[in-house]
């Protein structure tokens, strides 16, 4: 399976987004899914999505603009309170992306 390319977003583009990225890498590695992540601020998302090759976005703070790829709220994952629900959503998005590519 190919490596997925993910944008993680928080207000400063560093702390929360890095935590989410690292947790997600670990969680998906257990499923045999490898990802690369880029941490950005909300205002950088639109430009990154338009110019880069990203599969989906995970955000802890609202993202402005019309984003053409899936955007998944990662607050419950950051806090650990809704970790399983979040990962379930991520797995669904990933399988949809890979299915679309296979067809």
């Amino acid at each position: 399976m190919r490596t997925l390319n993910i944008l993680t977003v928080c207000g400063s583009g560093t702390i929360s987004s890095t935590m989410v990225a690292q947790k997600l890498k670990e969680a998906l590695a257990a499923d045999g899914i490898s990802i690369t992540t880029t941490e950005v601020k909300p205002t950088q998302v639109l430009g990154h999505v338009e110019q880069g090759n990203y599969d989906f976005v995970v955000n802890t703070t609202p993202v402005p603009g019309n984003i053409s790829i899936p955007v998944i709220n990662g607050v419950g994952f950051l806090t650990g309170l809704e970790e399983e629900e979040f990962l379930e959503e991520v797995r669904q998005v990933i399988s949809q992306i890979l299915n679309n590519e296979a067809n």
């Binding site: 560093t14 702390i15 890095t18 935590m19 690292q22 950051l78 806090t79 650990g80 309170l81």
Partner: peptide
């Protein structure tokens, strides 16, 4: 209040800090 010079360096600590929320 967080003063973080390099988030990657302190990921484990920050992750544990989050542990208090649950």
């Amino acid at each position: 209040l967080l003063a973080v010079a390099d988030p990657r360096e302190h990921l484990v600590l920050l992750k544990h800090l989050m542990g208090i929320l649950s």
